[in-house]
């Protein structure tokens, strides 16, 4: 049995999902000779540390009762630098201004010889190549399947399962909130504002929805796809972005009369006619990209395998944790 020591930075929905996944999958992981031990967890309020393994159920309970997991004076950076562990899981929220605090956590983790698994798009959308260089320099792995499409495998699909293929383009719906809003507007003929309010009430949209509805979240995911799958060197500023705030119910009904729906589509294409763009697009109703609800979907065009389409849940606590766990297992198997 190989013991794998982990830290979890950020203990919101995603961080707690990771803790739950580790609890739930203990027996499954032991069949793979992996014994995960979480030696430190931190959130905005502080950190808790236990070299023999933090009691994850107690940590979740403490977070829910007190609002913080903190049980010591240590900070996240103290845990990353001073507590010996193998993999740092960064589940801090995305910040598209400067990528912090995730960016510094990742750099420090690399410098202290820790592999990094993250669900945080900000640092990758802003400073992808610097992070990869730092990981390489320190001989550690850097995996981020959870940053794009939540539970839906896309990075590992392109890089592992489709290895040997050249991916020519990827297009898809990479933001469940926008998909929910447009799907509801289409089905009910309701206005954008009305459906946004409904989505906020259901917890599908944030109080400040701009990150989702203006296409910023989709753009960050495209940057990660462009850099990691297409080997581009682009940042968030290179993406041509149009959101969904101007979409009217009448436009959806006119599209419907032509047998089409409107979806917020992210698109990356390599080569001379290369593009990296987020925009509302007309999608034929019977096309694989025409999925409803909060689903995410991606269509990869490859040279040998042809078109490959994946769809799945793009967000959610345990769904995102599923992608993080797959990265942790990949590092443990040392096959990345």
């Amino acid at each position: 049995m190989r013991t794998v020591r982990l830290s979890i930075m950020g203990f919101g929905a995603v961080g707690q999902g990771v803790a739950r996944a580790i609890l739930q999958k203990k027996d499954y992981l032991s069949t793979m000779d992996i014994e995960p031990i979480v030696v430190g967890i931190s959130d905005r309020g502080g950190a808790c540390v236990e070299a023999g393994g933090v009691d994850l159920e107690a940590a979740i309970e403490r977070k829910q009762k007190t609002g913080s997991v903190a049980a010591s004076d240590l900070t996240a950076l103290d845990v990353i630098k001073d507590i010996d562990h193998d993999i740092m899981v960064d589940a801090t929220p995305t910040n598209i201004e400067d990528g912090e605090p995730g960016y510094t956590y990742m750099l420090e983790a690399f410098r202290h010889g820790r592999h990094v698994v993250t669900s945080n798009k900000g640092p990758l959308a802003l400073k992808y190549s610097m992070l990869c260089d730092e990981a390489d320099k320190n001989g550690v792995k850097f995996r981020f399947e959870a940053t794009v499409g939540g539970a839906m495998p896309i990075l590992n699909l392109a890089q592992d399962a489709l290895a040997g293929n050249s991916v020519m383009s990827i297009e898809g719906i990479l933001n469940g909130t926008c998909n929910y809003i447009l799907s509801r507007m289409t089905e009910e003929g309701l206005s954008y504002k009305h459906v946004l309010g409904e989505a906020q009430e259901l917890g599908i949209a944030e109080t400040d929805p701009s990150y989702d509805v203006e296409g910023i979240d989709t753009a960050c995911k495209l940057v990660i796809l462009a850099n990691s799958i297409f080997g581009m060197d682009v940042t968030y500023d290179d993406v041509d972005i149009t959101g969904i705030t101007k979409i009217t119910p009448e436009s959806l009904s006119l599209a419907g009369a032509e047998g089409m729906v409107i979806k917020l589509i992210g698109e990356v294409r390599d080569g001379n006619d290369g593009i990296i763009r987020v925009a509302p697009k007309l999608v034929p109703k019977n096309h694989p990209l025409a999925v409803g609800g909060t689903l995410n979907v991606a269509l990869l065009r490859t040279d040998m395998a042809g078109p490959i389409c994946v769809k799945g849940k793009g967000a959610g606590s345990i769904e995102t944790a599923s992608a993080i766990l797959s990265d942790i297992i990949a590092i443990c198997k040392n096959r990345c």
């Binding site: 409107i262 509302p280 007309l282 096309h287 694989p288 269509l299 078109p307």
Partner: peptide
């Protein structure tokens, strides 16, 4: 004015 174009469907 916002223009909404169709996705490319040729290669499918």
């Amino acid at each position: 004015l916002l223009v909404i174009e169709p996705i490319q469907t040729d290669s499918l």
